[in-house]
Simulated assay, not measured.
Amino acid sequence: MSGPNTDYDPVQVTPLDEENVVAMRDAALAAIEAAGDLAALKQVRLEHAGDRSPLALANREIGALPPQGRKEAGQRVGQARGAVNQALAARTAALEAEHEERMLVEEAVDVTLPVDRAPRGSRHPLTTGAELIEDIFVAMGWEVAEGPVVEAEWLNFDALNLGADHPARTMQDTFWAEPADHHLVLRTHTSPVQARTMLTQAPPIYVVCPGRVFRTDEYDATHSPMFHQVEGLVVDEGITMAHLKGSLDHFAGRMFGEGIATRFRPSYFPFTEPSAEVDLRCFVCRGVDSAACRTCKGEGWIEWGGCGVVNPRVLTACGIDSERYTGFAFGMGIDRTLMFRTGAADLRDFFEGDVRFSSSFGTEI
């Protein structure tokens, strides 16, 4: 019976011979020393000290040796891996200290410099736009009139000569408040403010009425169920369409620059007679070479609003002598006017609350 086999080569596994282990250790130490920053050192750590590094793979080969040779091979590989880990720790400490020193220089802050830590605020462009319009008419001697947004059906329709069968009364255009027998609506225009003014104030009347209005429109780039209107009303003796034309020309000039005129196209509104659509001379091409103008699309004119001479029935309904007094009224969207004035392409930008949009207008328009 034979005894244990003691005749073996303890370095018969090639990765475990002394020359190979030293070579792997030296390669790792050289890579660690060459790492110029923490990111490069992280990559070196993975390549030379990770689970798939040469020394880690060599360590796995120890199990292939006979029991008598494992101790010597284990010490050899363990010493090499220990030297690599010590070099990694030292290089990490050195690079971290270097990184902190560089940050102190590159990211230094002069705390003696003045600083405004509070961001500059801005007012909403619709607010400043409405105030600008008010200022234009106040400078002409007019007054600013306001009214509630939840309005009586009679003031929103009947007083303005919109009969019971008028299509604007249907749910297609109007938000009705419940219960229905209260006859309340979200006002569809600011004309009820004109009716309220005529009911409470004797002529002469010169008022401009800005405010929010509501209609059951789709919400898209050019429509909204809530938008803003400005309407004007004049009631006095001897008022004609000429006064209306002059007032709108002055308004257009102040909003869009000198030389911007208006034109009238015949139309129909229940509360004015005669009535007209107001077109605005294109403020981009000014009617010159309009074929190439993207704003007016070759027309030279842009639709702006509606206007006309106040219907005598409206004056009578509000208790004003229509034989003695005449008047004119007009209305246009503040949102649409500001889109023209500022070049805004999407009506929704005014309503969606993005402070980057509002802050671009500053505190005044």
Rank of each mutant, 00 (worst) to 15 (best):
S2R: 15
G3E: 09
D7L: 13
Q12V: 08
L16Q: 01
D17Y: 02
A23G: 04
R25T: 05
A28S: 07
D37A: 11
L38T: 12
L38I: 14
R45K: 15
L46C: 00
H48A: 03
D51Q: 15
D51W: 02
S53C: 06
L57I: 15
L65H: 10
P67F: 13
G69F: 02
K71W: 00
E72S: 11
V77I: 13
V84A: 12
Q86Y: 03
L95F: 09
E98M: 08
E100G: 00
R102M: 04
L104T: 03
L104R: 15
V105H: 13
E106C: 03
E107R: 15
T112L: 13
L113N: 01
P114H: 12
P114C: 10
A118I: 14
R120Y: 02
S122H: 14
G129H: 06
L132P: 00
E143C: 05
V144R: 08
E151H: 13
A152D: 13
E153P: 01
N156R: 09
F157K: 09
F157C: 08
A159K: 11
P167C: 12
T174L: 09
A177T: 11
E178F: 03
H183M: 06
T188L: 06
H189F: 05
H189E: 04
S191C: 02
P192H: 12
A195H: 05
M198H: 07
P203A: 14
P204T: 14
G211H: 11
F214D: 03
E218Y: 02
T222C: 07
T222G: 07
H223G: 11
M226S: 09
F227M: 11
F227D: 02
G232L: 05
V235F: 02
E237L: 01
A242E: 09
G246L: 05
S247L: 12
H250T: 13
H250F: 14
A252D: 02
G253L: 01
A261K: 11
F264S: 04
F264H: 07
P266I: 12
S267G: 10
S267R: 06
S267K: 05
T272R: 04
S275N: 05
A276P: 01
L280R: 13
R281C: 06
C282I: 12
C285D: 12
V288E: 15
C296E: 08
K297N: 11
G298V: 10
E299M: 08
C307Y: 02
V310R: 03
L315G: 04
L315H: 04
D321E: 08
Y325L: 01
Y325G: 01
L338Q: 04
M339V: 09
R341V: 05
G343P: 07
L347Q: 07
D349P: 00
V355D: 01
V355Q: 07
E364W: 14
E364P: 00
I365E: 00
